[in-house]
Amino acid sequence: MNGVPVTILLIEDDPGHARLIEKNVRRAGVSNQIVHFMDGTSALKHIFGQESGTGSAAHAPLLVLLDLNLPDMTGLDILARIKSDEHLKRTPVIVLTTTDDRLEIQKCYDLGCNVYITKPVDYEGFATAIRQLGLFLSVMQVPEPT
């Protein structure tokens, strides 16, 4: 990670899941800032920053961990917004969700999702997946925002 630290944007409506994800990612040695949003509207506000006025975050390198089942919108909307934005289209988006429907997965990749992970619905699988995600994040490269 070259100079500017990457911010991890966690968009997940279940606070417990968010906390467990954060803890396990930290245990894997990832120390980047993790910003957590529990709904789509506030996450979009943060990413595009127009209304919030805190434009500083807008052009910092980002990595998005995205749940598709959000209370106010589907994660697909957020994914589409990010991937169609001139500045943010190279931002890696990891979809982390419970849906294992084939068509849904295809749709996500069509929209430009970088990685699609199905949250295992059993605890053991879930814990393992999160640990592996943490290890993955610790080695992956994120492009500078243009």
Binding site: D14, G16, H17, L20, V121, D122, Y123, F126
Partner: peptide
């Protein structure tokens, strides 16, 4: 139902482990 019941259960199990 099974999915939605699973989500809190994962939390219970996760935090029990914690």
């Amino acid at each position: 139902v099974s999915h939605d019941l699973r989500a809190p259960l994962v939390n219970i199990m996760g935090f029990t482990s914690e």
